Computed example of a mutant assay.
Amino acid sequence: MPPSRESVAEMSAVLVRVSGNVARASRARTGAARLAILRAVAEGSEPRPSDLATHLALSRASVTKQLQELSADGLVELTVDENDRRSFFVSLTEAGRAQYDALTERGLQRFALFTAEWDDDDVRELARLLTKLESSIAHAVRNDTPIAGRPWQRRD
């Protein structure tokens, strides 16, 4: 039997509050944007900036600017794509891997603080349910038009 409207409304309200708090915290912490890019690069196999922009739902210009900054800081290496010399591949340097690991550890410490009074079973159950929700969302919207990019450039 599907969930009741009331339980869906309650879940929705909590998710909106939590995601809003996470978004505000990400904007307020300078390391959050770097971590998102570094994580996406670390999890990909030498992605292109366009791949990162799509994955992170950011503009290509924003991703390119951040990659240039990360490259200048010695955290990523940009390698020209020999098949398309206008594009390049992104990989982490050793310093980039170290910063990614440090930012990840800081994030884990924050979430450990948030769940300090929980037991392992509760944390695992939340992770399981969030993974299930993520999968359900992906399945439900698989045919939707992507919402990334400028609204006036989207096909409706």
Rank of each mutant, 00 (worst) to 15 (best):
A53H: 01
I37K: 07
V18L: 09
Q66V: 09
T93S: 12
L92E: 06
P151Q: 02
D156N: 11
R17A: 05
L35H: 08
R27A: 12
E6V: 11
H55P: 05
A116C: 08
V76L: 01
D51G: 05
Q68H: 12
L35A: 02
A28M: 10
L35M: 02
V141S: 05
D144M: 08
G149C: 03
S50N: 12
A98K: 13
Q68A: 14
E94K: 14
L75Q: 08
S87P: 07
V141H: 05
R39V: 09
A42Y: 09
H139Q: 15
T131E: 13
K132L: 15
L67R: 02
V63W: 07
E105D: 13
N143H: 03
E117H: 13
P2Y: 00
L52E: 01
F88G: 04
T115L: 09
R24Q: 13
T64I: 07
F89P: 01
N143G: 02
I137S: 02
V123F: 07
V80D: 03
D122P: 02
Q109E: 15
S12W: 06
A102I: 09
V123P: 06
F114Y: 12
G149R: 05
Q66G: 00
L38D: 06
I137P: 03
A23V: 10
R124G: 11
S71Q: 11
Q68W: 10
S87K: 14
